[in-house]
């Protein structure tokens, strides 16, 4: 007999349901030469062969960032998460309002990316593409490019959780990386380090939770640590935060 995955999916349609509820689905394990069945395949199997569930997806190969959710309690991309036979839970990404089932509205984090303004600030428009140190390009900037805006880092950051939440003062890990991209590149002429400080750079205490869930393997904490050190050198470390403003 084929092996089975039992998917416990947190269902919620705000237009019809009083509260979120778990529903169990049995999905047959797909034999594949790689030995891998992804979480997205499990969701497809439920949606196409059993009943409609709300989940978002696009690229299926870890690129677009649309299928971020909590799988077995961990923030991850469904398409980039290998499953094993047995029980698994699927829940929407926390800290965001649910649109339906596993689809959330990530606007509150996305707006921080908009505010970060990743467009390169230059006095004169770019005419030719400049040289960039290869190590900086390949090991840092190219990874920052690959941010999926999946918002997994926002859902795990302790500084953005309910107790002691800093959504007001802290742009969050993803938006800080957008600012870092401009701080580290060789073209931007704005004071991006000061911007990072104004965006809550020193609220981060380098716990490292974001690094663990980033599907693009961006060294978020290391980059924040470098910016904190540079800001301290420049005398930009704040002495505290306002209680309420």
């Amino acid at each position: 007999m084929a092996e089975i995955i039992t998917a416990k999916v947190l269902r919620y349609d705000p237009s019809t349901d009083d509260a979120p509820w778990f529903q169990d689905f049995q999905v047959e394990w797909v034999e594949d030469p790689s030995g891998i069945m992804t979480a997205l395949q499990v969701l497809h199997a439920i949606n196409y062969d059993q009943e409609q569930i709300g989940y978002d997806y696009c690229c299926r190969s870890g690129l677009c960032g649309r299928c971020s959710m909590l799988i077995d309690g961990k923030a991850a991309l469904a398409c980039w998460t290998p499953m094993t036979p047995g029980d698994h839970t699927f829940e929407p990404l926390p800290k965001f309002p649910v649109v339906k089932d596993l689809i959330v509205d990530r606007s509150r984090a996305y707006e921080r990316f908009i505010e970060a303004n990743t467009s390169i600030q230059t006095v004169n428009p770019i005419v030719n593409l400049p040289d960039i140190d290869y190590n900086l390009y390949w090991n840092t900037l190219e990874r920052l490019n690959m941010c999926r805006e999946c918002m997994c880092c926002y859902s795990v950051c302790p500084k953005l959780q309910d107790k002691g939440s800093n959504w007001k003062d802290f742009s969050g890990p993803g938006a800080l990386m957008a600012i870092a991209q401009r701080y580290l590149d060789t073209e931007d002429e704005a004071d991006r380090l000061a911007q990072a400080v104004y965006s809550g750079l020193f609220i981060c205490d380098q716990c490292g939770e974001c690094n663990k869930v980033c599907p693009s393997y961006i060294a978020i904490v290391d980059i924040i640590a470098q910016m904190q050190e540079d800001a301290t050198t420049r005398g930009l470390q704040p002495s505290g935060t306002a209680e309420f403003m």
């Binding site: 390169i120 428009p125 040289d131 390009y137 390949w138 190219e142 991209q181």
Partner: peptide, 16 residues
Amino acid sequence: TEQVGSILERTPDNHP
């Protein structure tokens, strides 16, 4: 593309 935010590929000798 680069002004708006992407960083296009650089070669090992640092050139675009």
